[in-house]
Nucleic acid binder design. Sequence first.
DNA 1: ATATTCGTTGAAAAAATATTCAATAAACTG
DNA 2: CAGTTTATTGAATATTTTTTCAACGAATAT
Lengths: 187, 187
Amino acid sequence: MKRKEQKEERRRAILMTALQLFVERGYYDTKITDIAAAVPMSTGLLFHYFESKEDLLMELVKMGAEGTKSADPIPGVPPEIFLSKFLGQLFSYATEQPWVFNMFVLMGQVRRPGMPEEARKIAEGVNAIDMTVALIKEGQSKGVFREGDPVIMSTMFWAAIQGIMEEMAVNKEFKMPDPECIVAILK
Amino acid sequence: MKRKEQKEERRRAILMTALQLFVERGYYDTKITDIAAAVPMSTGLLFHYFESKEDLLMELVKMGAEGTKSADPIPGVPPEIFLSKFLGQLFSYATEQPWVFNMFVLMGQVRRPGMPEEARKIAEGVNAIDMTVALIKEGQSKGVFREGDPVIMSTMFWAAIQGIMEEMAVNKEFKMPDPECIVAILK
DNA sequence: ATATTCGTTGAAAAAATATTCAATAAACTG
DNA sequence: CAGTTTATTGAATATTTTTTCAACGAATAT
């Protein structure tokens, strides 16, 4: 039974290639032929593994949604510490586990208008903003975060992270920021 | 000579319609037929006014690049005051001059990978980040802004603003944030 | 060793979208 | 008013991109 393993491996290769291209060039600008050529394989064969381009995106987004569950806050850990550690981890993935990093970037991109509805819905379901809103409230009540509408603060926080990650994804020389520097947005 | 004025007006109408659709649905997801239908006019006629969809985008981006020049810092004004006033103005445009606001959002979007090269280049030329880098350095030397790599801080700053503006553009109920709250990212 | 299934290809078909165009109506000019 | 230019339409065409498919080779099973 080596066939099945090989098939899985090929599937993964396609997914990872597509992920990288989607993040670096954008979903609409990466054509099926680009993905196939980069894997590499014939365009026809790609449809042996995925029903459509949108299906490919869906698989990625589902994986991303799955993976994000492990980013839930740990009860008892102070919010500023948790966020700081979380970001440190995230940024270190940029070089150590590029696909995890790219996945995060992709999830953020898919939430934007103009992306295929189905995928977008799933990505919106993984709402990091809600998670941080709670954390921000906690931090505010403890006096470690400054006052202000938690929803706006959370939006700013994630937008800043997304912006930095997209910069990092495209411009490989961009210096990895100190997590503290981002958590400081909330302080 | 009423013809010429009317033509200009029609042109503007197309431009403004396209701008709104591009921002709300994204460039690739708004079809030429969508724009024409929204103006409203026949799809064929649209090509009487603009050579192509990309040309339409180019015109918008050129307008945006032109308009952004008026956002240069005023010598002598303290950086934190300038930025705060600037953001106040910008956010107030969201309701008072939606097209100015949308233009800002569009410029940010066009800078991203996957957008048509030609337009992207122009948008990247209008680099608000460079402008703020100087302002941040000034603020740091005066001690009103906190320490940290000015490029990263500037990237964060604009990414946060872009994120909030995109939210405002799509979700009309989103509460306009206090500019102080954003400038606080730098303090 | 033969049959059967699966992987693979590249060219052809289909689908989505942008663009052109011939025809007509409306506005202007002298 | 007759003639000329401009605006307008929507169906036809061109282009771009995705998707299918018939054919063939390689691996696996019997």
